[in-house]
Amino acid sequence: MKSLAELAAIREKMQNKVVIRDGSSEIRVVVGMATCGIAAGARPVLNAFVEGVNEAGLADKVAVTQTGCIGVCQFEPIVEVFEAGKEKVTYAHMDAEKVKRVIQEHLKNGKPVAEYAITNV
């Protein structure tokens, strides 16, 4: 059974870590979660990022957040990747499989997946 004691244990563990958060992440992944995005399948995309970023050990470097309508609903699910000093990369028609590649090649190795990206948005 899941118990609140487990949450207390997580708290304990986190206290021993220096937690740097709130805008300090180097990379910000933003998933469009308005009606258009959700209907097109944004929920599994977001969850794949949340899980994948942590599994890849990038939690301290990458923040995964949600936003409303980005304005190009025909390309949903849309994911934007912001990185200080670099141009924003916009990925279109995302799914959980594509997320794996973006995490590996772009977030981890710094090379955007050109195949999935759209320009001039």
Binding site: K2, L4, L7, A8, I10, R11, K13, Q15, V50, N54
Partner: peptide, 27 residues
């Protein structure tokens, strides 16, 4: 709110917390 009272400063969007909530509901 109940979770927060246990978690203190640890944010709810902490990955381990998110996983816990998911499993908690599934269970």
């Amino acid at each position: 709110d109940e979770l927060k009272s246990v978690l203190g400063d640890v944010p709810l969007d902490n990955f381990e917390v998110i996983c816990w909530i998911k499993e908690y509901l599934e269970e």
